[in-house]
C-alpha cells in the first residue's frame, strides 16, 4: 500500500540556530490515525508544518504522491488540512460561514458552491446554527469545531490536528474525540493528552530532540515513556484526612 505521507531524512534549523528536526523518517497510511507525542520543543509542530509547506527543511516530504515543494503547494494544501492549536489564529473572517467558506473560495469554487460546501462542513461538525455568528462570540469548543469545519470544507484526505484539546473542558474534549472518530480521513494528532490520543489512535510516535525515537502501538509508547499525568512517588497528594 502506498503511504499518504512519506518523510525521509527531514532536517530543519530555525534562523536562531536551533536544530528543530534532526533526520525524521515517517510514513502514514490510508485510514490510519497516529498520535505524535513528545516534550515541549521536541519538534512535533515544526514537523507537521513541513507537511503542507509552511516550513521547508532538508530531506524528502511527499503527501498523497506529491512532493512538498513550491510548485506543488496549492495541490498539497488541498490534500492535507491543518487544524491549528490556537483557534483564534484560524478563525479570521467576520462570520463563521465566511470563515468556513474561505478555503473553498480559494480553491476556485463559485460563491454558491462555496456556501453549500461550507454549510455541509458546518453540518458535519454539528454547528450549522452558528453560521451567522462572529467567531469571537463562540466558546473554545465551538471555535475548535468551526476551525475543523474550515478544514473539512477543503475536503482533505489527511487531517493534522495540533494540540486539539488545548482550552477545551472534558465534555468538549469528549465531543471532539467522538466527532473525529466519525471522520473517515487519515489523521495525525499532535497531543500531550494520552487519554484523548488513545480514544483516536492505535499507533503513536515519540519525538525527542528533533528525532522520532519510537514508533509503535500507542499503549506501548505511553507505557515506555510514562506519558501520563500524575504525581511522582516523592510527591504527596495533599494533606491526609485525620483518623
Amino acid at each position: 500500500m502506498e503511504p499518504l505521507i512519506e518523510v525521509r531524512g527531514l532536517r530543519f534549523r530555525y534562523d536562531d540556530g536551533t536544530l528543530a528536526l534532526d533526520g525524521v523518517d515517517f510514513q502514514l497510511f490510508p485510514g490510519e490515525t497516529v498520535a505524535l507525542f513528545g516534550r515541549n520543543g521536541s519538534g512535533k509542530t515544526t514537523f507537521v508544518h513541513h507537511l503542507n509547506g509552511l516550513l521547508a527543511g532538508e530531506g524528502f516530504v511527499s503527501v498523497c504522491g506529491l512532493q512538498v515543494e513550491k510548485r506543488n503547494l496549492p495541490a498539497v494544501r488541498r490534500k492535507i488540512g491543518l487544524v491549528f492549536q490556537d483557534s483564534d489564529e484560524q478563525l479570521f473572517m467576520p462570520t463563521v460561514i465566511e470563515d468556513v467558506a474561505f478555503g473553498p473560495l480559494n480553491r476556485g469554487q463559485d460563491t454558491t458552491a462555496a456556501m453549500e460546501t461550507a454549510s455541509q462542513a458546518l453540518r458535519d461538525v454539528g454547528l450549522e446554527a452558528l453560521a451567522g455568528r462572529a467567531p469571537y462570540h463562540l466558546s473554545a469548543g465551538e471555535k475548535k469545531r468551526v476551525a475543523l469545519a474550515g478544514i473539512l470544507a477543503m475536503e482533505p484526505e489527511i487531517l493534522v490536528l495540533d494540540e486539539p484539546t488545548t482550552f477545551l473542558d472534558p465534555p468538549a474534549q469528549r465531543d471532539l474525540a467522538a466527532l473525529l472518530r466519525r471522520l473517515p480521513q487519515a489523521k495525525l494528532v499532535v497531543t500531550h493528552d494520552a487519554r484523548f490520543a488513545r480514544a483516536l489512535a492505535r499507533r503513536a510516535v515519540f519525538f525527542e530532540k528533533g528525532r522520532i525515537v519510537a514508533d509503535g502501538p500507542i499503549d506501548e509508547i505511553v507505557d515506555r515513556f510514562q506519558w501520563v499525568p500524575g504525581t511522582t512517588s516523592g510527591e504527596a497528594a495533599g494533606p491526609q484526612p485525620a483518623g
Partner: peptide, 23 residues
C-alpha cells in the same frame, strides 16, 4: 507573532493573496 500564525493558517487553506467573499 499572532499575525504570523494567522498568515500561516491562511496559507494552509489555499490563500494566494486574494480573498473572495460570499455573494
Amino acid at each position: 507573532q499572532r499575525a504570523e500564525g494567522i498568515h500561516q493558517a491562511m496559507l494552509a487553506r489555499g490563500f494566494s493573496g486574494r480573498t473572495e467573499l460570499l455573494s
